[in-house]
Design a protein around this nucleic acid. Structure first.
Lengths: 227, 227, 227, 227
DNA sequence: GATGAATGAGGATTCATTCAT
DNA sequence: TATGAATGAATCCTCATTCAT
C-alpha cells in the first residue's frame, strides 16, 4: 500500500503518476521498468517517489492490485437475468472481460505479464494468479453439473484453452477493429447486434460451445483427469 | 545475420555457443539476458562475441530466425498420406508443432516470449509473428475451399485462436504430463492411441472441429473480414 | 548556538529533543547520525528542527558543548578537603571523570568519538580537545610545583597518557563490572573500599603514581619540552 | 581477496589505487568512505573497480588484512638479544609498533577505527581484534611468570592500559616531533640515545615499569580477576 | 582472430535541507 | 511558528560495448 502522502496528492498529479507508472510496467517487465523513467515522465523528483511508496516493489504490487480490483469491478456487476445457461453466463463474462481489457489495456497487460513470467516473489504469484484462473475453473465445473458441458470434457484443459484465448482476445480485437467500434464496448454500452465486435465475439463463443456441448463420444477418455 | 567469422568457427564451438545463448534467451527476456553469462558459460572472450555478432540484438534476431527455421523443418516434412482432409492435416500439423515445442523447448520459448512481450523493435515483431500466423492462415483458407470449414468463419479470427492456443499448448502439456509420456512424442514416435497425451490433443482438436465445421448459420456475418 | 526559538520551547519538549539527539549522535558518528530519525523520535516536524538550529552541524557542536559543560560541572564541585596532595586530587578527579562517563555515557561517547575520529572541521577538533587536555595539563603543572611529581616528567606527554587512559576507562569499567557495582559510582556515592571498582581504579592510579613520583634519574632528558 | 585482474595491474596503478583507498578508509569510516571518491581520485572508471574487487566490503577487508600483515612484518623481525627481560622486550615491541604507525599512519588508522567502532560484521571484528590484544595479553602473562611483573597486577586491566596508550602513541609522537626526528624511527634506524623520540618513549615505559614491577602491597585485591 | 580489462551511463535508493502552506 | 512534502545530489553497483594488446 502506498503511504498516506500518496493519497494526499492532488488527484491530477496522482492520476498522472499512476497512468505513467502503469504504462511503464505494461511495456517493461518488473526488472526493466525504470523508476528513473517514471519519475522523469511524471515530472517529480526522484526522492518524491520514495515519499509515496516504500520502494519499486510496493508500487508494482499496488498496480497489480489496482488491476485486480478494477477487473473485479467489471466482473461483479450482476449479469442481467440471473439464473442462466452456462454459455449465456460465459458470454456475459467474456464481454465483461474484454471490456476490461479494452478499457484498461495497460493495467491488464501488467497482470498478464505477471502470470506468464513466473519470475515474481511467490506471494505476488499467488495474488496474481488468483483472479485469472478462478472464474473459468468454477464456471466449467458448474457447467458440467447443469449438463451444459459434456461430462467427458477435461476441465483443466478447457480452462487452459479459455485462458489462453481470452487473455489475448482484448488485444486482438483492439488491433483489428477501428477505435470507434471498441469505444462503445469499452464504455459499457451494449454491443449493437450488427457490429463487427459482436460478430467476432459470437464466433469465438460458438466455436467453444459446439465443442464443449456435444463432445464426440469417440474421443478417447483422458486417464489422469486433472483436479 | 552473424558475421563470417562466426561461420568459420569449429562446429563444436559454434554449436556450444548457440546452445548456451538459446538457453539464456529462453530463461530471460531480451533485456535481462546477460551477455556476460553467455560468453562465460561458452568459454569465449567477451570481445570474441563482438567479432561474431554486431551486438546483442543481432544475436537475438538470429536465434529467433533459427527457431522459425527449425519449426518450419518440423512442419514441412510431408504428412504421410498427402491429399488430406483439412482437419486431418491440422491434426498432423499440431502434433508436429507440439513435437517441436517438446523437442526444442528453449527455442520455442524465445519466439513465444517475443510474441507475448510486445516490447521488441517493430521489425522483430513482424518477423516473429510472420511464421506463426502464416501456416494457420493458409491452412484455413484451403479448408474453406475444400468445404471442410464453414464459409462464414472469419479466417483471421480463427488463426488468432489457433495461435493463442498452440503457442501455449506445449508448455501446458509439459507441465501436466509426466516426462515419460512426452518423451515419445518429442522423439517423433507416433502417440499411442490410449495415451493421455493423445487424449488431450484430441479434445482440443475436437473442440475446434465442432466449432469450425458446422458453423451455426445464425451467427451474424462479420463485416470487415480481415485480410 | 541554537536559535532563540529553541530556548523558547517548553522545557519538556526541549529536553526530550536533546535526549534523543544525544542518543543518536552517541550511537552513530557525525555522518551517520540521521536527522530523520531524530525528528521522528522526538515527534517534531522536519522543518521545525531548522527553526531551532541552522543545520546538523550546529546541533552537533551544541551537543559537544553541552557535554563539556556537564563534565566541567562534575569536575568543578570542590573536592572534600581542599589543599591536597596532587595524587589525592587526581584520585578525586578521576573518580569524578569516571562518574561523569557512567552517569552520561551518551554525552561522553559523543566527545570521545569526536576526539578519536579526527574527521571533524578543525575548529571542532580544537573545541573538543580543549577541555580534556586542560585539566590534566594544569594539574600536572601544579604537581610539579608542590614536588609531588618529578621535575623531569614531560607534562604534555603525561597529560596525553592520562587522557588516552581516562577517555576509555569508563567504557572499560562498564563492560567489565556488573551493573550494580557501577550504579553506586554513577550516583555519586562513595566507592566501597572492598569493591572491585575501587580496586581497578587504585591499580590504575598506582601505576601512574609510581611512575610519576619517583622518576628514574637515568631517564634521558627530553629536549624540546612541549608547551 | 581482490580478483586476479587487480594483481595484473601495472604496479604503479595498483599502488596508486591502494594508497588512495587506504587514505579514504582512514579518513572515513566504512559507511562513509566513498567509492566514487576513490575511483575518481584514482582516475579509473567506476566499473573498473568492480573488476578488481567484488564490492566495497571486499576492498575494506583487504585493506584491514594488508594492515595486519604489515604490522605483523614489523613485529616479527626478531628482537636483537633473544632471552629478554619482559620490559626490554616490551621496549622493543613498542618501538616496532610505533614504527609501524609512523610508517603507515593511514593503514593503522583503519584497523584502529575498526576495533573502536564495533559496527563491523562479526567476522571482521574477530579478524581485526586478534592482532591488537594478543601481544600485550601474552606478554603480561609471561612477565608474571618471570617475576618481572607483580603477581597482584590485573592482567586484563594492564592490557587495556597498554592498548589505550599505544594505539595513540604513534599519532601523538607524529604531532609532537618534527618530521626529521620521526623519519629515522619510521625507517627502522635505531633511535639516537639523545633523541627526543627516545626520551619520550623511555618516559612512557618507565611509568609503566615502575607501576607494574613494584606494585604497592596496600592496593586492595581485585575480586573478579578477569580471564 | 582472440583477448579481457576499461568504460560510463544507467540501475534503485537515501537524506539533509528547503519552501509553500 | 509549525508543518511535511519536494528536492536532487550522492550512495553502491551492473553490464553491453570498446579497444589496445
Amino acid at each position: 500500500m502506498p503511504k498516506e502522502t500518496f493519497f494526499n496528492l492532488p488527484p491530477d498529479k496522482r492520476e498522472k503518476f499512476l497512468e505513467i507508472a502503469i504504462a511503464e510496467f505494461a511495456e517493461n517487465d518488473y526488472q526493466n521498468a525504470s523508476m528513473s523513467r517514471i519519475v522523469s515522465k511524471a515530472g517529480i523528483a526522484k526522492g518524491s517517489f520514495y515519499q509515496y511508496f516504500v520502494d519499486k516493489e510496493e508500487l508494482y504490487r499496488y498496480l497489480l492490485d489496482l488491476g485486480m480490483q478494477e477487473k473485479a469491478r467489471f466482473l461483479s456487476t450482476p449479469p442481467p437475468h440471473s439464473p442462466m445457461n452456462v454459455f449465456a453466463y460465459l458470454r456475459w463474462l467474456i464481454q465483461a472481460g474484454v471490456r476490461f481489457e479494452l478499457a484498461n489495456p495497460y493495467l491488464s497487460q501488467i497482470g498478464y505479464r505477471a502470470v506468464k513470467n513466473g519470475t515474481l516473489p511467490d506471494d505476488l504469484m499467488v495474488q496474481a494468479r488468483a483472479g485469472a484462473q478462478a472464474f473459468f475453473g468454477q464456471l466449467l465445473a458448474q457447467g458440467k453439473k447443469q449438463g451444459d458441458i459434456a461430462a467427458d470434457i477435461d476441465e483443466d484443459l478447457a480452462a487452459f484453452m479459455f485462458q489462453a484465448i481470452f487473455t489475448e482476445l482484448g488485444g486482438y480485437i483492439m488491433k483489428r477493429l477501428p477505435a470507434d467500434e471498441t469505444a462503445a464496448w469499452a464504455n459499457g454500452r451494449a454491443l449493437a447486434d450488427d457490429s463487427e465486435a459482436k460478430a467476432l465475439l459470437e464466433q469465438v463463443l460458438h466455436i467453444f460451445e459446439s465443442g464443449l456441448r456435444r463432445q464426440n463420444k469417440e474421443t478417447p477418455p483422458i486417464k489422469g483427469q486433472a483436479s
